[in-house]
Every structure is written in structure tokens, then in C-alpha cells.
Nucleic acid binder design. Structure first.
Ligand SMILES: [Mn+2]
Ligand SMILES: [Mn+2]
Ligand SMILES: [Mn+2]
Ligand SMILES: [Mn+2]
Lengths: 223, 223
DNA sequence: TACCGTTTTTAGATTAATCTAAAAAACATT
DNA sequence: AATGTTTTTTAGATTAATCTAAAAACGGTA
């Protein structure tokens, strides 16, 4: 019964992410939305995953799904693989940060522990991926980093861009246009009350306006 | 009807290789053997592939299968991907030549033209893979190289190892043990009539005996 | 607490990819 | 040409992964 299929892996990852985000079991509907399938299909999948040996998800009817320890192990390993491949694509193959997610979505399902460990070495055991998301180590431990949204940075304070909340291609491309790449230095010169937009100083040199929406999706770390 | 599945791709590759090797349509049984399935399953798959739009295989009942031009395009592109990934694994991730086939068997199915072209660039557009097999370019053209089996090299002649016919891990590992890697220089000192074994001089320094079976699976190129 | 809208599950169907067993066709050998 | 063996195809079944439609359960509000 063992080898885990791509569909099963993607469900596990969806459940993991939803549980992390909301701190409670993932609903059938929410999972279906991520998987681009229907709630009925998710119910069937959850049933199969919870009957695996060992069980990969916990599930009581109408109460949502969460992962067991073996399930979490698989999910974090998928995230590890996804983020390492994204890093490879950006660092070694010169892809831009908005192009790599889709491809990594496929590469993450390649099953060869040795491959991913060698890739990790080749990349110099990076701790964060091109979007600033932490890459779990082989044991599933994430590196925690104190970060806040740019909307939470006090006026007149300076910080460095370290990640994004929204990682959609359109947002990432827009950030490129604004020169807001990882590592960029931003100082909040003025927060405009009227519409929540922010006048910022970029890399000590350029002044520009960032909408509230942009600032709500940018993670920064104070110096 | 379009996106081609992994199972379909593997069948196309099997048909391509069989047609190349024997110069005639591939039999259901031969394909089944490569795919590790049954003849009945292959018949079903061939039917589906020949009813695709465009058709990928030519097939008349009881007469074997061969590829159409669109089918050949897909097959050579798979071979290109397989061999580029093998090269990546050996050159960049320090895998040995006997470990890479299985992993490449999975990686070859990742669908992203840009990925494979970038990988090709990253590797320096190699013409041959770690087993000495030619890597087709993006248009499907293979680099031809004049090569013979070591059994065909005349006594007292010198040549360089450029490839293997058998690429099974056990043979490759045995070659490593014999220091018969790609690029090694071999001179046939004596061909022993009794059992077809060969006394050779390796890299101008070491003398050793190679069985007929080994020599029948080693490609060399005269200087 | 009874009702109503929403969410989840069940029931039943479909498609791809495989299997086994049986029938049909092709091939080979007297 | 007749017969027997091998190969290929057909028929029918199975499993994973999905769907739609209907039934059941849940949760909030009157
Ligand atoms: Mn995925
Ligand atoms: Mn990422
Ligand atoms: Mn393959
Ligand atoms: Mn190879």
C-alpha cells in the first residue's frame, strides 16, 4: 500500500499549509480550492490517506483534516524539496523568482532522497528560498526569523526586505519593477493616513510611494 | 486530448528505442518487456496513442508499432531530457554513472521546455552523456561519432573508451573497478583465441585481462 | 428549538492504466 | 496444406482519481 502518489502528496501539502495558516483542521472545501478539485473528491482522498498504514491524516466526519506525525514528515519534506528546487532554478539556472513555483511544483515529487541531499549540498545548504521562505533541513526543522510586514514597520524606521506573503507572479513581477528585491533597504518616511499608502526611501537613495496592499504583502526585518 | 502522460511518454520512448535497434516496427511483447507490463496493456496503449490528434504511433493489427513524426519528436525530446539530467547528476551533483539512470527516468518527464534549455546551457551544451550516449539538440539531432566495440579493435591497435553498450549498474560498477572510465586509453596487446579474452594495456601503464563479454559492451574510438 | 443555508459526505459514474483469461491471427514445421 | 506453438488482440475486471447530484449533518438565527 505504500508508495505515495503525486495526488496524495499534494493533498498532504495542502492540509499541512492550511493547518499551519489557521491553526485548526483543514476543511474539505479549503483543500478542494487549493487542489482545484471538488469537496467530494477531497473527502475520498482524505478517507484513503487516513486508512493508509501508517495513517497520514487524522479525520473525523465533518470536523476537517489534520496531519499525523508521519503525514507531517512527508509534507515538510515536500516543502523542503520544493524550496530547494526553486533555489536551484534561480541561483543556478537564472530563472526569475516569479517563474519557479510552477516548475518546482513538479520537481518536488521526484522521489530520491540522495538527489535532494546532494542538491542541498550543491546549493550550499541555503536556509531560505528565492521568496524568503525558510527551507526545512533534512529533519524537518525550519529556521525561524523575526520578520514583520512592512505595514507594521514604524514610521522613520529602516528595515530590509526578507520575503513576500503573496508569491503570485504578478506581485513578484511588480516588485521587480519597483526594485523591491530581497535584501533591499527600506525606510518608511511617511505613512499617509488617507489611503494607507507609504512614502519610503529605497536603498538610501530613491523615494517612492508604495500602496498599502504592497506593504501588506512584504516581509521586512529591522536592522 | 493533448497533455501526454508519463505512461504514454514511456511507451513512446520504448517504441522509439526498439525501432532504432531492430530497424522494424516494435512488437507488443518487446514493448511490454521494457515497460514491465503485459502485452494486452500495450495493445491498449498503442491504440490510444494511434488515435491521438496528431497520431503518435503507426499501427496495423499484428504488425507492430512505429512512431509518426510527432511521436518521434516527443521521444527524442525525452531522450534529450534524460541524458541532460544524467549529465547534471554526474557533473554537478557528483553521482556516479551507475546511479543516475533511475533518477533521470523520473526527471525526464518534467514538462518545461525552458527548464531543459537552461539546463543545457548550464551544463555547457554537452554532446554526450555520462555513458557516452549522444544528447540530441533541441531540434532532435544526434551527434554521430565513429565508434566500434572493443572486440572489433585490431590487435596491437590503441583506442579510447567513449561509451558502453550495456549500461546496467553492475557492468558500470565493474568498469569502475577495472578503471575503465570514459577517456581511458586501451591497447589490445593480445586477443586470446581460446576464450576470446583480451590482454590490454590501460593508459600506457597497466596490463590486464578483459573477458570477451566486457569487450563486447565497451565502445572505443581509434585515435 | 425549529428552520434554513452552508458544508460535508455518500452514491453512482467516468477515465486512464493496468491486469487475467480467452479468442484470434500469424508463424513455423512437418 | 494441416497442425501446433507463439504472439497479439479482445473481453471483462480492477484501482486511483476525479466528477455530478443528492442526501445528511452542522451551525447560526429567528
Ligand atoms: Mn505539487
Ligand atoms: Mn518559494
Ligand atoms: Mn521514464
Ligand atoms: Mn545514459
Amino acid at each position: 500500500m505504500n508508495p505515495i502518489s503525486k495526488a496524495e502528496e499534494n493533498h498532504l501539502k495542502a492540509i499541512f499549509n492550511l493547518c499551519e495558516e489557521f491553526g485548526k483542521p483543514a476543511s474539505t472545501n479549503a483543500i478542494a480550492k487549493i487542489m482545484k478539485t471538488k469537496a467530494a473528491s477531497v473527502t475520498a482522498m482524505i478517507k484513503r490517506l487516513s486508512e493508509k498504514n501508517p495513517a497520514l491524516v487524522n479525520h473525523q466526519k465533518h470536523k476537517g483534516a489534520s496531519l499525523t506525525e508521519p503525514g507531517k514528515k512527508i509534507a515538510t519534506n515536500l516543502i523542503r524539496k520544493h524550496r530547494l528546487w526553486e533555489t536551484f532554478l534561480v541561483e543556478k539556472l537564472n530563472f526569475s523568482w516569479d517563474e519557479v513555483h510552477e516548475i518546482a511544483e513538479e520537481l518536488e515529487h521526484i522521489k530520491a532522497e540522495k538527489l535532494i541531499d546532494r542538491l542541498d549540498d550543491f546549493l550550499g545548504r541555503p536556509k531560505f528560498d528565492p521568496h524568503g521562505d525558510p527551507i526545512p533541513d533534512a529533519d524537518g526543522n525550519f529556521t525561524f526569523r523575526k520578520q514583520i510586514l512592512l505595514t507594521e514597520l514604524a514610521e522613520h524606521k529602516t528595515a530590509v526586505v526578507v520575503g513576500v506573503l503573496d508569491d503570485s507572479p504578478s506581485f513578484l513581477q511588480y516588485l521587480d519593477k519597483l526594485h523591491l528585491v530581497l535584501g533591499a533597504k527600506v525606510k518608511v518616511l511617511e505613512r499617509i493616513e488617507y489611503d494607507g499608502s507609504n512614502r519610503i526611501l529605497l536603498n538610501d537613495t530613491h523615494e517612492q510611494i508604495l500602496t498599502n496592499k504592497v506593504c501588506q504583502n512584504l516581509y521586512v526585518k529591522t536592522l
